[in-house]
Nucleic acid binder design. Structure first.
Lengths: 144, 144
DNA sequence: TCCATATAATTGATATATCAACTAATTTAA
DNA sequence: TTAAATTAGTTGATATATCAATTATATGGA
């Protein structure tokens, strides 16, 4: 037995746990709604929908994912015909956008996602949410 | 383009990003210190060190990991001879504990980990840390 | 112009997460 | 007491994360 702080009391461990709880709950809600998508696929889909002809590099940077992960997640979204991959002006790159099915799917998923956000934050008022946001940004700044 | 909140402004997305930044920074520090271990292996090692003859089920529950993940992480820690796996009173289960090398390794890693915690939280006073903890626990309660 | 360097994306290897199926051991209940 | 149900752990399949190596294309400088 160590004389150190127990893992359960460590703030960084609580952040990890919170993230897992959010992801698990979101995934369950997607499944219950009959939406065949993972949380990571959702994030990629949403970012493409929010962007204008985004490239894989920009997707990776804004989602804090590796380029390799983006390639593989896109393979699955392409197979589901939710995303289009168009050769870019620069022939090394591609420009991504949603298909009609992708836009429809995104709308459906967004209903679920907004409900998860509402439920997860229901006991935190606006001030508390702002404080939380500020604290997390400080941690990121300290370690990035 | 959607009329919805951008991903970057979503609190849950910020929690995910914070978690990633903490993990990446920790992993880099382990590597720089010559410690051949992943963050997940560290969490398992630390929990075993903090516990008395813990079983895999209890490890999984307290770390919010799947039993299957615990099996595979333990395989690697066993190969590194940092952990012992002893048949439990109940013959279906095993009791885990650290080897002498495991204890030594844990002490070294703990130095790094404490420094990461200090650095990451350096601009947050005790009150702000308590508020952050409370907010995260509310989110967990709302979704668990 | 041509070569060296840089960049976008892919692929392979290993680690982890999740789910389902499975084995072995234990407990419960008829 | 024995059959059914439960529990601990493992294994296989698929998704994702990370790192390194590779391909194709682009760019900058001699």
């Amino acid at each position: 037995m160590s004389n150190d702080q127990k893992l359960e009391d460590v703030l960084f461990y609580l952040i990890e746990k919170t993230n897992k709880v959010i992801r698990r709950y979101s995934q369950i809600r997607f499944i219950q709604a009959g939406l065949d998508i993972t949380v990571d696929q959702w994030l990629v889909l949403k970012k493409i929908g929010d962007s204008d002809r985004i490239t894989q590099i920009d997707l990776a940077n804004s989602l804090y994912k590796d380029r390799a992960s983006i390639t593989r997640i896109l393979d699955l979204l392409l197979a589901k015909k939710l995303v289009n991959k168009v050769e870019g002006h620069d022939k090394r790159s591609y420009e991504l956008n949603l298909t009609a099915a992708g836009r429809k799917f995104t709308d459906q998923a967004l209903t679920i996602v907004k409900d998860v956000r509402r439920k997860g934050l229901q006991s935190l008022d606006a001030k508390e949410q702002d404080t939380l946001r500020a604290s997390l940004q400080k941690i990121i700044k300290n370690l990035e």
